[in-house]
Computed example of a mutant assay.
Amino acid sequence: MSTDSDVLFTPTRLGSIALANRIAMAPLTRNRALPDRVPTPLAATYYGQRASAGLLIAEATQISPLGQGYLDTPGIYSAAQVTAWKTITDAVHARGGKIVLQLWHVGRISHTSLLPEGEVPVAPSAIRADSKTFTANGFEDVSAPRALALEEIPALIEDYRQAARNAITAGFDGVEVHAANGYLIDQFLRDGSNHRDDAYGGSIENRTRLLFEVVSAVAEAIGPARTGVRLSPVTPVNDAHDSNPQPLFERAVERLDSIDGLAFIHVIEGATGGDRDNLPFDYAALRARFRGGWIANNGYDKASAAAAVTAGNADVIAFGRPFISNPDLVERLRTDAPLAALDPQTLYGGGEHGYIDYPPLG
């Protein structure tokens, strides 16, 4: 006899991507891409071990050298990076999995030591974030940014477009545009970080413009059915805040829905990695404005995930840190097996310990 939780283990589709189940692995920064921001062979093992997820969303990956904000995070702009990512996608596909790449530009959440010589972080406005980032010296305050000039924005959009093409060359099944967690596109969305007085600032229509233009460019480059977006309407991480997020994100989703055939929107509910109810927000109002697939994320367990899918509040549920210490998380959820504990000391940087040596059941 089937139970309500069985819905998590049924197939579905996100755009052109066929999923064996409704459990996604959320993107997880692990700071192990070195040297030259190139993923190592360990990453092929790591992602291959977790290929039973319906969808793997690979770790946030910078679209250009200026997009980097943390030590030893991978890129998707050099030939060596594309080649290395191809070994990872091959490993996932060999195990029957599907994987998309999260396209990332951190904007003001960066430090000058991580950027090309002479560069400072860029942002919608020259407002330093009350935040820290991970450098060779550990966690440090982010550097003061400069405002992107209007004439620089077309080249930025082209960086996203080319990164998407590179991801497909590297064998990914699609991409997720990172527009969440206080990074560059999210900075443009929010009036706490965007004080511009040009076509990209002021009104909600202007503040959602960069999101729309980037996602449109990516969808044009690789097809909308292989393009997704991540949003986090009320997270406070990385000094993200807006005076009225409900109408802002409703309009953002409406604009994304106008890109016909977009594969999915991936929404972090509440504070990223924290309180799901940190601020009142009507996520159903966003869901009602989008015709594509919907991934919900943050603090779900098996019961709440199944309830959300059964109720039609999501098509897929993304799990983050549980996938780090449980490479076979799908099977553990299916059989109600206990979850292995995470070692927080090995989350960021290092080698195989705490990365590929968490054992599966049995």
Rank of each mutant, 00 (worst) to 15 (best):
S52R: 14
A53Q: 10
G54Q: 08
G54R: 04
L55Q: 09
L56W: 05
L56T: 09
I57Q: 02
T61H: 05
Q62E: 12
Q62W: 11
L66N: 06
G67I: 13
Q68V: 14
Q68T: 14
G69S: 06
G69H: 01
Y70F: 13
Y70S: 04
L71F: 08
L71D: 00
D72S: 12
D72G: 05
D72Q: 11
T73V: 15
T73C: 09
Y77L: 04
Y77I: 10
A79N: 12
A79H: 13
V82C: 09
T83W: 00
W85Y: 13
K86Y: 03
K86W: 00
I88D: 06
T89I: 10
A91Q: 11
A91I: 09
V92E: 06
V92I: 14
H93W: 05
A94N: 14
G96P: 11
G96W: 08
G96H: 05
G97F: 03
K98I: 08
K98C: 06
I99W: 04
V100S: 10
V100T: 15
Q102D: 04
Q102W: 13
Q102M: 12
L103M: 02
L103H: 08
R108L: 06
I109L: 10
H111Q: 01
H111N: 13
H111K: 01
T112G: 05
T112P: 02
S113K: 11
S113I: 05
L115D: 00
L115E: 01
P116W: 01
P116T: 00
E119L: 05
V120P: 04
V120S: 14
V122Q: 14
A123Y: 13
S125A: 10
A126F: 06
A126G: 04
I127A: 07
R128D: 01
D130P: 10
S131P: 07
T135I: 10
A136M: 11
A136T: 09
N137K: 15
G138N: 11
E140M: 15
D141L: 13
V142N: 03
V142Y: 00
V142K: 03
A144F: 06
P145N: 12
R146N: 07
R146V: 08
R146E: 07
R146I: 10
L148Q: 02
L148Y: 01
L150H: 10
E151S: 15
E152M: 14
E152A: 13
I153A: 02
P154V: 11
P154Y: 06
A155L: 09
A155P: 00
L156R: 03
L156Q: 03
I157C: 04
D159W: 11
D159E: 15
D159S: 15
Y160R: 01
R161A: 03
A164W: 00
A164F: 01
A164N: 02
A164E: 04
R165E: 13
N166L: 09
N166R: 10
A167C: 08
I168D: 11
G171A: 11
D173H: 03
D173I: 05
G174D: 06
V177D: 00
V177E: 00
H178F: 12
A180N: 09
A180R: 08
N181M: 04
N181K: 07
G182I: 13
Y183Q: 04
L184M: 10
L184K: 12
D186Q: 14
